[in-house]
């Protein structure tokens, strides 16, 4: 067990190092940060002095080594745009992203599962076909387009929901802020959550539908029906339960994806989370924020995979013996 965990940990570290190297290489192609940090009239000498102070003139291996050693100590430096420590900025933005991701995942599950069950049980009905067509939209339309569509329908035309921001937020504890406790905060969550969760919702719905169709054909369901059990019991107790295993796995993995790829949704709705900050950083060549975000995202995936691996170890006895 310890050997297995160590091996996985070692692999995880290699992955992180590779991501760091990729991120670092990428920054050399995004443009010149100094131009974004000073006004256009700033003289060449002053630009050069700033470049020197930032260490951008050092040899590339020196820069990379400095970057990795600092990142290993969770020191991502100071944001070029905001002149504040990157870790503070992330701490302020994390609640927004996590609340949005959580609500989207909830939306995807709460809406996706019943739709999937219905479509699985009544595959010929018109409603099921409607569900399938709607889900096609969810998969094929790009996120930003859905977002803008929703804004124009619900904010501009109907004026029911806000088009941007988090609404009023309430501080909880020393650094968390929540929009769950105010009316405007809850209203502001609706459109971004739907936009972000639509893809996952369709995914879950189609998954459940397919699994349902599969399970319903199995012998034990036929036996259950033969025993004269009521439909409700057969469908929900026996069939649904067995479809949920893959759904739970997928949902777990998708949660990581939701957090990591909230970027577009956050930009469309000006949602003050990490993804929005990342996109702004890209536009302004704010290297410290970009690198921290990429490493954070990589860390999230590596951590999820690591946990899943360890869980498999407990679930699947075959992993415990004789693997090199």
């Amino acid at each position: 067990m310890i050997g297995f965990a160590t091996r996985r940990l070692l692999q995880a570290m290699i992955v992180m190092l590779v991501v760091a190297l990729l991120a670092f290489t990428m920054f050399r192609f995004v443009g010149d940060p100094v131009n974004q940090m000073v006004g256009i009239e700033t003289s060449i000498e002053e630009r050069e002095a700033l470049r020197e102070r930032l260490g951008l003139n050092d040899p590339i291996p020196v820069q990379f080594f400095r970057f990795v050693t600092q990142a290993a100590q969770f020191n991502f430096g100071t944001s070029y745009q905001f002149r504040q420590p990157v870790s503070d900025l992330f701490a302020k933005r994390i609640p927004a992203t996590l609340e949005l991701s959580f609500t989207s995942a909830l939306f995807a599950l709460v809406v996706g599962i019943p739709m999937g069950i219905y479509a699985g049980l009544n595959r010929e009905s018109a409603v099921s076909k409607l569900f399938l067509s709607v889900s096609l939209i969810g998969i094929s339309l790009p996120t930003f387009f859905i977002g803008i569509l929703l804004i124009f329908l619900f904010s501009v035309t109907l004026q029911w929901l806000p088009s941007f921001g988090r609404g009023e937020v309430v501080p909880v504890g020393s650094w968390w802020t929540t929009g769950f406790l105010t009316v405007s905060g809850l209203k502001a969550l609706i459109l971004p959550s739907i936009t972000l969760g639509l893809y996952q919702m369709t995914l879950i719905m189609r998954l459940i539908r397919a699994e349902m169709l599969e399970v319903i054909r199995t012998d034990y369901i036929k036996f259950a029906r033969a025993r004269g059990l009521p439909d409700r019991l057969v469908n929900f107790r026996h069939a649904l339960k067995n479809t949920l295993v893959p759904v739970i796995t997928i949902t777990g993995l998708q949660l990581g994806a939701i957090i990591a790829f909230a970027t577009i949704t956050e930009t469309v709705f000006q949602w003050p989370g990490m993804g929005l900050m990342f996109l702004q950083a890209v536009q302004n060549v704010d290297i410290p924020i970009m690198s921290a975000y990429l490493l954070l995202t990589a860390f999230l995936f590596v951590a999820i995979n690591f946990i899943v691996d360890i869980l498999y170890f407990f679930i699947d006895p075959r992993l415990r013996v004789g693997r090199p």
Binding site: I148, I151, F152, S155, V156, Q159, P162, S163, F164, G165, T267, V268, F269, Q270, L276, L279, Q280, Q283
Partner: peptide, 18 residues
């Protein structure tokens, strides 16, 4: 003051009266 980077969202926020 709120910064809104997306053109479409900025215009929508004005049109909706927010």
């Amino acid at each position: 003051f709120t910064p809104i980077g997306s053109d479409a969202t900025r215009v929508a926020a004005l049109l909706s009266g927010e």
